[in-house]
């Protein structure tokens, strides 16, 4: 359970300044605002051919664009902050397994991301006067999708922190690997928003769960190589 100490240290430092959390929340908020300007009133037009409003088609994509872009901000700072004043060396000197550093970082990143997500969804509901039909289902999809995002993102964040162009490189290498998560999460979110039942998205949930498990295990195995000197 030593990784909890590392997560606790990160969260304590974060909640002293709330720098990262505020930027992530405001960024996600701005993304939703830009979408609401871009689509305007047309979003609420009802299209009889597909028996849906336009916003129903756009909603899952908008939410996940906001989540992943804002999450990316947090991820890129997650290890970059440790580069200052030799904090990473300090972490490596801790009498814990290297994978505990990864697990601690995963928890602190996930907490920040969940906080950002639960503030973004209400903003979205208000700006598009939207009604979410299956809230527990949506939360399950968001949970699994976010975990996949964080598992791979934390590993690649540690990988890019040692490179020259870290802030630019992370999104470029993260998105191709993340495709299964984004694709499944967007489809599943669409069904959940439209009052579908969990059994309709069993396939998507399976893929998200498999992805989470595979990359969690792989990260335990290869994480030590990303921060070794």
């Amino acid at each position: 359970m030593k990784f909890l100490h590392i997560a606790w240290k990160d969260l304590k430092a974060e909640f002293r300044t709330k720098q990262m959390l505020n930027s992530m929340m405001i960024f996600a908020f701005l993304v939703i605002v830009i979408f609401s300007f871009a689509f305007g009133n047309e979003a609420s037009i009802y299209v009889s051919v597909i028996d849906k409003k336009i916003v129903d088609l756009l909603a899952p994509g908008m939410l996940w664009i906001a989540f992943t872009f804002a999450g990316m901000l947090g991820l890129s700072r997650s290890f970059a902050g440790e580069k200052e004043d030799g904090c990473l060396e300090g972490l490596k000197l801790c009498p814990v397994d290297r994978s505990d550093i990864y697990n601690g970082k995963v928890i602190s990143n996930a907490v920040l991301m969940f906080l950002m997500e639960i503030t973004t969804i209400p903003v979205f509901v208000v700006l598009f006067s939207y009604e979410i039909k299956n809230i527990p289902g949506l939360l399950l999809v968001v949970l699994l999708g976010t975990l996949g995002f964080i598992f791979v993102g934390t590993l690649l964040s540690a990988l890019t922190v040692n490179t020259r162009t870290r802030e630019i490189l992370l999104p470029v290498i993260l998105f191709p690997v993340l495709l299964p998560v984004i694709l499944s999460a967007v489809t599943a979110t669409g069904v959940m928003l439209a009052a579908g039942s969990i059994s309709e998205i069993a396939g998507e949930l399976q893929i998200l769960a498999i992805y989470d498990v595979i990359f969690f295990i792989v990260a335990q195995l290869v994480f030590e190589y990303t921060i070794e000197d």
Binding site: P180, F215, V218, Y225, T226
Partner: peptide
């Protein structure tokens, strides 16, 4: 070292992408 890590992670992403 770093590209080897990405070589492993990236390859594992391919079958999952296909499935999704």
């Amino acid at each position: 070292r770093l590209s080897a890590v990405f070589g492993i992670v990236g390859f594992l992403g391919v079958p999952l992408s296909f499935m999704s």
